[in-house]
């Protein structure tokens, strides 16, 4: 699905063709895609919540668990680490809007220095996204070491699927960001290219708001 959206997002009549609303084709398609994603993540989050507390064996997210063989498992979610990764993803959204502002206002007064460097902000956003993925890789591997895999119980299945889908979206976003960064380095993005960054930013921020929901519903509420 992400593929289809990416395909739609890049393709359109680039020239000044007539449009009914004066809006960009790809931006309309991207918002429609985001609407669709609301239902995808709505289903994934619903499933996680419906299955919360229904696992017959541990480890559990917020409660300790002693297995029949006497092995003790701590509550598995690591709030400090996830708070840090949440902070990184929130900051990436700031970098993203600054990248968009830099491209939109290239050459305008007030955008001479760092604020006008679209390359810097695109790279910063991609780096923040990659850092978030690094945190997630750390989280997943430590869970596996503590005895929770996607096969262990309903919590494992629904948790890894939900956060894994979100992580995949972040990874696609990082790839997209790096592609735009590559184009920026190759030929320099101009204000006329701002629509491309605008559309990518919508996707990126949406992935961020999904994490805002996941962080509250999965990590914080017991």
């Amino acid at each position: 699905m992400a593929t289809a959206a990416a395909a739609g997002a890049h393709e359109a009549h680039e020239h000044a063709h007539y449009t009914t609303t004066g809006l960009n084709h790809r931006k309309i398609a991207m918002w429609a895609f985001i609407g669709s994603e609301c239902m995808l993540f709505g289903s994934l989050i619903s499933t996680y919540l419906v299955y919360k507390g229904r696992s017959v064996v541990g480890p559990f997210p917020h409660e300790a668990w002693t297995s029949p063989t006497g092995q003790v498992f701590k509550p598995i979610l690591n709030i400090p680490v996830t708070s840090a990764s949440t902070f990184v993803l929130l900051m990436s959204s700031l970098f993203m809007v600054l990248a968009l502002a830099a491209v939109e206002n290239k050459g305008k007064p007030g955008y001479e220095g760092l604020l006008g460097s679209s390359k810097f902000w695109l790279a910063a956003t991609a780096a923040a996204g990659a850092t978030f993925l690094g945190f997630q890789a750390y989280e997943f591997t430590s869970f596996v070491h503590e005895g929770l895999t996607i096969k262990t119980n309903l919590f494992g299945s629904s948790f890894f699927t939900l956060t894994g889908f979100h992580g995949t979206h972040v990874a696609v976003g990082v790839l997209w960001l790096m592609t735009m960064l590559f184009i920026d380095m190759k030929r320099g993005l101009q204000p006329k290219d701002a629509i491309n960054i605008d559309i990518m930013a919508l996707y990126w921020h949406f992935v961020d708001v999904v994490w805002i929901i996941i962080f509250a519903l999965v990590y914080l509420i017991k």
Partner: peptide, 20 residues
């Protein structure tokens, strides 16, 4: 997207051993 999610669960059950 809703059947996509439901099918992913089924797909993961069938191929990756999840327990949905």
């Amino acid at each position: 997207p809703v059947i996509t999610a439901a099918l992913f669960f089924l797909q993961f059950d069938r191929f990756f051993g999840t327990q949905f």
